[in-house]
Amino acid sequence: MTSTDFVLGSASPARLRVLQQAGIDPRVLVADVDEDGLVAELAASPPADIVTRLAVAKADALVPRVGDGDDVVLVTCDSMLHIGGELVGKPHTPEVARQRWTRMSGQSAMLLTGHCVTRIRRGEPIARATDSAATEIRFATVDAAAVDAYVATGEPLAVAGAFTLDGLGGWFVDGIDGDPSSVIGISLPLTRRLLARVDVDVTTLWSAQAR
């Protein structure tokens, strides 16, 4: 019986942690994709389409690098926050992170995560399934001192929407409506459904320790 090689196409430690806690120990590859350029190119598209296209672009960049195994599953994701009609990603700088939190404080926004599951055999894609997950985030009202303290930690600079649910940012999220794993970066329910669409049973991917 051929075992399936599970590859996570992401540098996100949060996505890796979600999978590991759910019984999968993936191989990790990181795609080199001009995300900002692609977002600008797709600016007129619906937000859910944009995050899904980003996930697909990462998959396309990584397919040549996964190797020539008999059965490889590559999972790529991309998350962005949709707030006030604008789709925003990682702030990268303290100034942008402060601006984001001034805007998000006391408001609700939608965290969108695009997913792409590609099944590869001997270096060639044989099946692909894509979709996105949306979760409403209800942000607490946060004063300037708390925003400054959070930004000073550096955590919000490199995460979609300038916040985390499973880290320090969780103190400033009053609630969510939807899938928490999607907010962290990879939706377990959606990934399970996409795996099924490419004829992979998620239980066969669990590590020996999880079974």
Rank of each mutant, 00 (worst) to 15 (best):
T2K: 13
S3G: 04
V7F: 09
L8E: 13
G9K: 01
S12R: 08
P13F: 14
R15T: 00
L19I: 09
Q20N: 10
A22R: 08
A22P: 09
G23I: 06
I24W: 01
I24P: 05
D25T: 07
V28D: 14
V28L: 02
V28C: 13
L29Q: 14
L29D: 03
D32T: 02
E35V: 00
V39Y: 07
A40K: 13
A40I: 10
A40G: 05
A48Q: 04
D49W: 01
V51G: 00
V51K: 14
L54D: 07
V56C: 13
A57D: 02
A57N: 06
K58D: 02
D60E: 15
L62Q: 00
P64Q: 12
R65G: 05
V66W: 09
G67S: 09
G69A: 12
L74D: 00
S79H: 04
S79A: 03
M80R: 10
H82W: 15
G84M: 00
G85I: 09
E86A: 11
L87S: 07
L87Q: 03
V88P: 05
K90S: 09
H92A: 13
P94V: 03
V96N: 08
A97H: 09
T102P: 06
R103V: 01
S105V: 15
S105P: 08
A109V: 12
L112F: 04
H115R: 02
R119E: 06
R122Q: 13
G123R: 02
E124H: 15
R128H: 13
A129R: 06
S132A: 10
A134I: 06
A134P: 08
A134H: 10
A134W: 12
T135A: 07
I137C: 02
I137V: 04
R138W: 08
R138V: 03
A140E: 08
T141H: 05
D143F: 13
V147T: 01
D148G: 10
A149R: 12
Y150I: 13
V151N: 01
V151R: 03
G154H: 11
E155T: 01
E155P: 08
P156H: 12
P156Q: 15
L157D: 13
A160F: 12
G161Y: 10
G161P: 11
A162H: 01
T164L: 14
T164E: 14
D166F: 13
G169W: 01
G170Q: 07
G170S: 00
W171R: 05
F172D: 05
V173P: 04
V173L: 09
G175I: 01
D177F: 06
D179Q: 10
S181T: 11
V183R: 10
V183N: 08
I184V: 13
R192V: 02
R193D: 04
L194W: 12
A196P: 10
R197Y: 05
V198T: 07
V198P: 07
T203C: 15
L205H: 05
S207V: 00
A210Q: 11
A210F: 15
